[in-house]
Computed example of a mutant assay.
Amino acid sequence: MERQQERLGTPRAAGIAGVVFAVLMGVVIVLVRIALPGGADGHDITVDEAQRNTVETALGLLPYAGIAFLWFMGALREQAGAAEDRFVSTVFLGSGLIFVATLFGCAAAAVTVLDENQQNAPFGRHYAYTLLTTYSLRMAAVFILTTSTIGRRLGVMPRPLVFLGFATGLTLLVAGASLPWSELAFPGWALIVSLDILRGRRPSATPRPAA
């Protein structure tokens, strides 16, 4: 009985954690982009004190976004239960963990960029930009694709949301940094999924019969 109550509370936990992650991640991405307006190729970057303080505050919020994402990921995995596919679940878990790791690395590099700004040193800027737009973005794409695959197989995601996930994941995987502000697609997708969960997710997660 206690186990059933925990499982019934899981969708709401996933939804709330997903919304928190989406909002915090969106703010962090916007402010990091402001701190690196020229991307990896910007050489003449000046950051005033007010902007520096804003970015430092945003980077201070990033660990909480990472924690919310881990909670979101764990709650989604709990929804699958015994019906989960081990292969897809392993890719799901690995991509999520690597995403958080690279995200934290990007945050550390962004702090370095702020410290190096007066010397106009390019290394930290290139490092942060590459982590954010190449590695983190690709892992986010894999996470979206595996989540959508699990949602389709178990029937716990509406078909339009599954299609949206596949389209978003493939776009980020293939196009990546070539699309301006494409990093916002991930928190945007997470927000849509979380709101769908809070609106009312199906109570059971059972695999669909093979065709």
Results as ranks from 00 to 15, higher is better:
P203D: 03
S204W: 07
G200M: 05
I144N: 07
F21T: 00
G66H: 11
L198G: 03
F92M: 03
T57Q: 09
R202K: 15
F99A: 11
V23A: 06
L131Q: 00
A177D: 13
A14C: 02
G39Y: 11
A65K: 07
F163N: 08
L145K: 14
I67H: 01
T112M: 10
R33C: 07
A108R: 12
V19C: 02
L103I: 10
T146Y: 01
L195F: 05
Y135N: 03
V19S: 02
E183D: 11
N117T: 12
A109F: 04
L31N: 08
M139E: 05
A109K: 04
G94H: 01
L145C: 11
T46F: 14
A40E: 04
G38F: 12
V142T: 10
G18C: 06
A80F: 04
T146D: 01
S136Q: 09
N117K: 04
H43R: 15
I16D: 00
L31G: 06
L132N: 05
L184H: 11
I98N: 05
G18H: 01
L145E: 09
T133S: 11
Q5M: 08
L161P: 06
F72H: 00
V88E: 03
L8C: 06
L154E: 03
L8E: 10
R77H: 00
V156W: 06
A35T: 14
W181F: 12
G81N: 01
G165S: 15
P160K: 05
F143I: 15
R152P: 07
N120T: 14
V20R: 01
V162F: 03
T102G: 02
S95R: 08
